[in-house]
């Protein structure tokens, strides 16, 4: 058993006591459009959980709530012992900078910056000095096998290369949770698979929790388990019994 696996086993045991991240009875509407109609779910430390469901079912909305980017109209979101849905915008954005990493399908790299500058950015934003930030960024690029791209800018990279840089950027702050919304949605399968395989490998090694939103079951199969959203609600039968709401 690897160290990461042992850590995960520990955190599984811990999860029975209290989950790392959870949503309780979360309701969100955009104007009069209901997007989430009372979702309750929880994620343990070190777990990789796929959130799946048809287009428009509310996956991205759930991710935004869990990541503290969107505040639910009703219900609460907890991270550890904090009720983040009740916190101010400033407190949530501090939390996101320190503990979370995000990874979206498109347009996340700054086109004017080189790969290494893009990866260093989250560190610089949280007050790390340029030299150590650059060193850390280079290390992460190296771990993803793209150290040779350090000085390239996003427009000069392929989709797969750009996405690896984005994964490195999501990991550089060594977040507790990585939120990924269709991280490989814009790639052809082999490039997508390589990005996913790397994401899963490094997050397992680091014991990072991952919330992976996808409509593709082949992507969902990289996760430890799946949470199925249907029409703004948790599909409990398809999700299985492992995700019983914890009180």
């Amino acid at each position: 058993m690897t160290v990461a696996a042992a850590l995960r086993a520990d955190s599984d045991a811990e999860m029975n006591r209290s989950p790392l991240l959870s949503a309780r009875s979360v309701v969100v509407s955009y104007g009069r459009t209901p997007a989430l109609r009372g979702v309750t779910m929880s994620v343990g430390g070190g777990e990789i959980v796929a959130v799946t469901g048809a287009s428009g079912s509310g996956k991205s909305t759930l991710l935004l709530c869990l990541a503290g980017i969107l505040r639910p109209d009703v219900g609460e979101v907890r991270f550890g012992d904090r009720v983040i849905s009740a916190e101010s915008e400033a407190a949530r954005s501090r939390l996101r900078r320190r503990e979370f990493g995000v990874l979206f399908q498109f347009g996340q790299l700054v086109p004017e910056l080189s790969a290494v500058e893009n990866v260093a950015l989250p560190l610089l934003l949280s007050g790390v000095r340029r030299r150590p930030a650059t060193t850390a960024a280079l290390e992460w690029l190296d771990r993803f096998g793209i150290a040779d791209l350090a000085d390239s800018r996003p427009p000069q990279m392929s989709g797969g290369q750009g996405q690896r840089v984005a994964v490195a950027r999501a990991m550089v702050t060594e977040p507790v949770v990585v939120f990924a919304d269709e991280p490989t949605g814009a790639l052809d399968t082999l490039a997508g698979e390589q990005v996913l395989a790397q994401l899963v490998r490094v997050t397992r090694e680091a014991g990072t929790t991952v919330i992976l939103v996808t409509h593709d079951t082949r992507v969902a199969a990289y996760a430890d388990r799946e949470v199925v959203i249907r029409d703004g609600m948790l599909d409990e039968v398809a999700t299985g019994s492992s995700d019983r709401p914890t009180s």
């Binding site: 079951t217 082949r218 990289y222 996760a223 799946e226 199925v228 398809a238 999700t239």
Partner: peptide, 18 residues
């Protein structure tokens, strides 16, 4: 729905192999 779960579990096994 339950068949879907069984399929996904099998897909996870193959993904691990891969």
């Amino acid at each position: 729905r339950r068949q879907r779960q069984a399929h996904l579990a099998r897909m996870r096994d193959y993904t691990r192999v891969k």
